[in-house]
Simulated assay, not measured.
Amino acid sequence: MRVIFGDSRNMKEVEDNSVGLVLTSPPYYNAPFDFPDLFPSYADYLSLLNGVGKEIFRVLEEGRVAVFVTADVRIDGELYPIVADLIKIMQSLGFKYQERIIWKKPEGYIRISRRSGVLIQHPYPLYYYPDNVYEDIVVFKKPGKFIPRNKEESKIDVNKFQREKWYLSVWEITNVLPNNKYSKYTAPFPEELARRIITLYSYVGDTVLDPFAGTGTTLKVANELKRNAIGYEIDLELKDIILERIGVNTLFGKPQIEVIEREDAKRLRTKLREKIEEKLQNR
């Protein structure tokens, strides 16, 4: 397992055509709850997706898929079409748009929103603002053919597949709740979501890559499912959290982990600390 702290628009540590599956959740564009003012503009955000997409196309094996967990984001009343723009970007890079699955969160576990309450206060047309209870799981395939490896060891439990209704294009999975210890660092997707995707789209022994590793959900689950894992994360402040997470609950003790800290991540950490100090001084 490798964890590289650096900008995933340059994944020089990964060889061409060496990755069996990409599973990731990019930061949500300037989302009010999680990433306010992270990007100077929406164009900068799309440029990030394009840069990372180019590298994904390079490192992914032919015939394999890249899976993004993401959603449109509303900021100051404007809804940004992240999913549609991501599809356009990936298609322009040579990927085939293969699948779109809806991840539906239980109604009782979503963040409390005032949006739907507007109509209660103003019960008239054009005051309708629904609460969002879903995200998109978007699947892109790199053209070409691949030869399956470890087929029998990677066989999917058909009973589980049917019992939990994996065959539907809507998956009902409880989201990571705000009181979860990892929620205060990023906006992680649940391990069950990663487990389904890795099981359905990769084989035992494959390398699973997450270009936006966050707190390490993809890495942890990939290791548990006997896949190799590579994660990129630009925020060095998450180093201890990632290492703690992927080093627990493993069947044969802690996995062998190679950690690389690149200069671009170190520069970002210094820049962020300067911003924090500046804010504190201006209070």
Rank of each mutant, 00 (worst) to 15 (best):
S116I: 03
E107P: 00
Y167T: 01
K12T: 12
R273N: 11
N50T: 13
V3L: 07
R283P: 00
G63H: 01
M11F: 00
V158P: 00
Y232V: 03
V14K: 07
K96G: 12
P81Y: 03
L251E: 14
K88G: 03
W171P: 06
Y129V: 13
R100G: 06
I120R: 08
E274H: 05
E107R: 09
I4S: 01
M90P: 11
R262Q: 10
D206L: 13
A222M: 05
P106Q: 11
I112R: 07
I198W: 00
G253T: 12
Y80K: 15
G117T: 03
S18N: 04
R195F: 06
I257K: 07
K181P: 01
K254Q: 14
G20R: 10
G247A: 14
K88M: 08
I276L: 13
V52K: 00
V19C: 06
I4H: 00
T174R: 12
K145H: 09
L119Y: 15
V170I: 15
I110E: 11
R245N: 11
A43Y: 04
A194V: 10
I112V: 07
D44M: 07
G253Y: 13
V158M: 13
A66M: 06
I4M: 03
P211C: 10
G63A: 02
E261Q: 12
T207M: 10
K151E: 12
T207F: 06
D76S: 15
A265Q: 07
A194N: 07
R2P: 00
I75Q: 06
A265L: 12
P36Q: 12
E233S: 06
Q256Y: 09
E152M: 07
G253Q: 13
V259P: 01
K160L: 13
K184F: 00
P27Y: 12
S8A: 15
D240V: 07
W103C: 03
L126D: 04
W171D: 13
K184A: 01
R195I: 05
L86E: 05
D76N: 15
A66Q: 05
S202H: 08
D131I: 11
G117F: 10
Y134S: 09
I257P: 00
Y134V: 04
I110S: 14
H122N: 13
G77Y: 04
P26M: 02
R58A: 01
F5D: 11
G6S: 14
F35E: 09
P188Y: 00
Q162N: 11
A31D: 09
K254P: 13
L280E: 14
L119M: 13
D235R: 14
V19N: 07
T186Y: 02
K220Y: 01
F161Q: 01
L225Q: 10
K279Q: 10
G94N: 05
G94I: 03
V138T: 15
I147Q: 12
K96C: 13
L86K: 04
G216A: 10
L177Y: 00
E233D: 06
K105G: 10
N249D: 15
T199Q: 04
F212L: 04
E233Y: 08
L49H: 02
D264G: 06
R163Q: 12
A43Q: 07
G247S: 15
G214L: 10
S25I: 08
N179K: 14
A71Q: 06
F189M: 07
V14I: 15
L243F: 02
K160F: 01
P130G: 09
E152A: 08
R245V: 10
